[in-house]
């Protein structure tokens, strides 16, 4: 089962962090955000911060995949899961970079 988890894990985590950033963006643009005494600039900082954390998580996951403790039973699962780990790093950078460039709630 470790092989299957290794293969599906990295991008699954991408889906979770990507959705969480989307959720955070929704919160920033909702009425709850000003009710907490926060502005859109705070929102931008929070979003970029979340993005960087997410990238860190994906990089950490690549490191975990290299660890002996989670070694795969087949060489194939080792290769494929490391590629997919890096794919997830690219995916989170690529899919969430708008936090840094586009207008937040317009």
């Amino acid at each position: 089962m470790i092989d299957v988890i290794r293969i599906f894990g990295p991008l699954f985590v991408w889906f979770a962090t990507f959705s969480a950033i989307y959720g955070l963006q929704g919160l920033v643009c909702s009425e709850h955000w000003p009710a907490l005494g926060l502005t859109l600039s705070h929102g931008r900082v929070a979003l970029v911060g979340a993005w960087l954390v997410a990238i860190g998580i994906q990089l950490g996951l690549v490191a975990v995949l290299q660890m002996r403790r989670v070694a795969p039973a087949t060489g194939l699962a080792g290769d494929v899961s490391i590629w997919l780990g890096w794919s997830a790093v690219v995916a989170i950078i690529w899919s969430s970079f708008p936090v840094a460039v586009t207008s937040t709630c317009g």
């Binding site: 991008l11 991408w14 989307y22 963006q25 995916a91 899919s95 970079f97 586009t102 207008s103 317009g106």
Partner: peptide
């Protein structure tokens, strides 16, 4: 797995903020 992260691209004309659209466009 990536195909799960693109559902909002059917909703580009619903008035969702541009940043959210940009996530799903990317």
């Amino acid at each position: 797995v990536l195909s799960f992260g693109i559902w909002v691209h059917h909703m580009f004309a619903t008035g969702i903020p541009h940043m959210a659209l940009a996530f799903f466009s990317a």
